[in-house]
Design a protein around this nucleic acid. Structure first.
Lengths: 223, 223
DNA sequence: TAGTGGTCTAGACCACGAC
DNA sequence: TCGTGGTCTAGACCACTAG
């Protein structure tokens, strides 16, 4: 099996605690090492990950305990997957142009001659409008395969794993051209999230503006 | 010295890379172990932390490299410290009452008979209004010492370390009673951040509503 | 005193990439 | 083939807490 032992143990621990109430103690690291026939350091690595994700918490010299579910780390800003709703996208624009706005040029660190893919789409969950996404990517940063698959791309998490995400939260009034698509009144206050996905090297890769429908989508982060 | 070796090594590595350009390679884990006279696992723990914080990135089978500064993890939602500005607070209300709103009761999971400390204050940086903070804490959750120091408490990070923080971002128009204090026009869209600090056990501890001045304070997260 | 988490060591093997 | 990060082991000592 090529899945690392500590990840297997992590899954087993999740299963073990799944029916325990909050604040129940879990076996000590030494005991778990015996239970799973692994070294203590390996078990510890699994627990480290679970603590990090908010499944468990440690009390020095006392033990490790099941955390309350409310403490599970989550970041719903880019994820809609966890919830069992049918997510669909309705494309509004998809084009490649050399003349991008100064804003896009500055965020993607490009000149006015570079071709930029622009994709604007409405995101729906169970037919209800969640947000409008404006996505900008430098054409040369995509190989032909990625470019072809772009209209089918649902979320951009795969791109983020390879780099880093900076999000800026901007209060604004819903833009007039989007108000009716989001089923909002004009002058409704909303949050526009500016997402900048960088590569590991730091080079900007994707610039994305998300206009969120506050009636549908709550932006919540647990850390 | 009681500071763990891996933290000492972490600081030494930060110092080592502080003048290196982005994407420079750092010595291999084995070399660093020799340089700092520690085991590879200890060095690795230091690097793990630095990768987590966005100082370094790894390329499997190739090496470890200095990350671009833009990738440093940051969360300016509750922190104002990093920037060299003089932060001051102007107290608007400070009282203890048994009759709290349903909203506060529900977030703090208390009944109408429980006394709640309410603290409303204006946060300024270099005399410029940054935000209004409404803070609610169940009186019984504070010992007398903590209660006395409350008016002097600047940020609540110390409380978070012992638990977890959930933040909800709510778009709204600036409340009339706060508009002039934040030097905003009426009907200005702003972001109100609801902060709920939980203890490790999951019990809610502090409920805090922050009305941010968008002209002064940009909410930005790198992850 | 016994048990816990926190740290640390000095090895080991693997898969992968570059040469 | 050699060096890298990724994983893993079987020990060890410490500070602290609870009985």
């Amino acid at each position: 099996m090529s899945i690392p032992i500590y990840l297997q143990i992590k899954e087993k621990i999740i299963e073990m605690i799944s029916e325990l109430p909050a604040n129940s103690p879990v076996p000590s690291e030494r005991d778990l090492a015996v239970i799973y026939s692994a070294s203590r350091m390996t078990v510890r690595k699994a627990i480290d990950a679970l603590v990090d994700e908010g499944y468990l918490y440690r009390n020095s010299n006392k033990g490790t305990f099941v955390a309350d579910e409310v403490l599970r780390k989550k970041n719903t800003t880019l994820d809609e997957k966890s919830i069992e709703r049918e997510i669909t996208y309705k494309s509004i624009y998809f084009d490649v142009k050399a003349s991008s706005s100064d804003e896009v040029q500055s965020y993607l660190n490009i000149s006015g001659e570079d071709s930029v893919v622009r994709m604007i789409r409405l995101c729906l969950a169970d037919e209800r409008p969640q947000s409008i996404e404006e996505i900008y990517i430098k054409r040369l940063d995509l190989d032909d395969d990625e470019f072809r698959n772009l209209p089918k791309t649902r979320d951009f998490n795969d791109f983020i794993i390879q780099g880093s995400l900076t999000q800026r939260f901007v209060p604004t009034l819903v833009p007039m051209q989007y108000a009716h698509m989001l089923e909002l009144k004009i002058n409704e206050p909303i949050i526009m999230v500016e997402n900048i996905i960088n590569r590991k090297s730091g080079a900007p890769f994707i610039y994305m503006k998300v206009f969120n429908n506050p009636k549908e989508k709550v932006i919540e982060i647990t850390s």
